[in-house]
Measured scan of single mutants.
Amino acid sequence: MTFKLIINGKTLKGETTTEAVDAATAEKVFKQYANDNGLDGEWTYDDATKTFTITE
Rank of each mutant, 00 (worst) to 15 (best):
K50R: 15
Y45N: 01
T51L: 03
I7N: 02
T17S: 11
I7L: 08
T11R: 10
Y33G: 02
E19S: 10
T51G: 02
M1H: 14
L12F: 14
D47N: 09
T53M: 10
A34K: 02
N37S: 08
F30R: 00
L12K: 09
A20L: 03
I6L: 07
K50I: 03
A24D: 10
E56N: 06
V29R: 08
T55G: 04
D36K: 11
Q32T: 12
K50V: 04
E19Y: 14
A48I: 14
A48G: 08
T11I: 14
Q32P: 01
A34M: 06
G9D: 04
D46G: 02
V21R: 07
Y45I: 02
E42G: 06
G9H: 11
F3T: 01
I54R: 00
K31P: 00
Y45K: 01
K10N: 11
T16L: 14
E56A: 08
D22S: 06
N8R: 11
G38M: 09
F30E: 00
D40G: 08
E27I: 11
K10I: 13
T55V: 06
G9T: 15
E42H: 15
E42Q: 09
T49W: 04
F52P: 00
N8W: 15
D36T: 09
Y45C: 01
T11Q: 15
V29M: 09
L5Q: 00
M1P: 15
T25L: 07
E15Y: 14
E42P: 04
T17K: 09
D47K: 09
Y45T: 01
K31C: 05
A23G: 05
D22G: 04
K31F: 06
T49C: 04
K50H: 12
A34Y: 03
A34I: 06
E19M: 14
F3A: 01
A24G: 09
A24V: 11
I54S: 01
G14D: 08
T17H: 07
K10A: 09
G14F: 13
D40L: 15
T55E: 07
T2Y: 11
G41D: 02
G14I: 15
K28R: 11
G9N: 06
E15L: 12
L12G: 11
T18V: 14
N37H: 15
I54N: 01
Q32G: 07
N8M: 13
K4Y: 12
K28E: 12
T2A: 06
K10F: 12
T11D: 13
T2F: 13
M1N: 12
G41Q: 02
N35H: 13
L12E: 09
D22N: 09
T11Y: 12
L39I: 14
T25P: 02
I54T: 02
T18S: 04
G41F: 04
E19F: 12
T49Y: 05
I54W: 04
K28L: 08
K10S: 07
Q32F: 05
F52A: 01
T16Y: 15
T44L: 07
G41A: 03
T53F: 12
T2W: 14
T44R: 13
N37E: 07
E15F: 11
D40Q: 15
T25A: 14
N35K: 15
K28S: 11
K50Y: 10
A26C: 02
W43L: 06
N8L: 13
I7F: 15
A24I: 10
D40E: 15
L12S: 11
Y33W: 15
T16G: 04
E42M: 13
T51W: 03
N37C: 12
N35F: 15
T25K: 05
A26L: 01
K10R: 13
A26E: 00
T44A: 10
Y33M: 05
A23V: 12
I7R: 02
T49V: 06
L39F: 11
D22V: 03
D36Q: 11
D22H: 04
E27H: 11
E19Q: 13
N35R: 15
T17Q: 12
F3L: 02
M1Q: 14
E42Y: 12
T51M: 04
T18A: 08
G41N: 01
A24E: 10
V29Y: 15
T11K: 14
A20H: 03
Y45F: 06
N37A: 15
K28Q: 12
L5W: 03
T16R: 15
L5I: 03
A20I: 02
V29N: 06
K13Y: 13
V29D: 05
K10P: 08
K50G: 06
G38E: 06
N37V: 13
G38K: 12
L5H: 00
I6A: 04
T51V: 07
V21E: 10
I6K: 06
D47A: 10
K10V: 13
V29A: 08
N37I: 15
L5T: 01
E56P: 11
T18M: 11
V29C: 06
D46I: 04
V21Q: 13
T53P: 00
G41C: 03
A20P: 01
F30C: 01
E42A: 09
K28P: 03
L12R: 09
K13A: 08
L12W: 12
D36S: 09
L39S: 03
T53R: 05
K50P: 00
T51Y: 03
T16K: 11
L39W: 13
N35C: 09
D36L: 11
D47W: 08
I6Q: 06
T2V: 15
I7V: 09
T55M: 06
T18E: 03
E56F: 11
I6R: 06
V21F: 12
D47Y: 06
A24S: 07
G38W: 06
T2N: 10
T55D: 06
D47C: 05
N35V: 15
G9Q: 06
I6D: 03
N35I: 14
I6H: 05
G14P: 06
K4P: 01
A20M: 03
T44D: 10
D22M: 03
T25V: 08
A23K: 14
K28G: 09
K50N: 11
K31Q: 07
N37L: 15
E27L: 14
D47T: 08
I7P: 01
M1V: 14
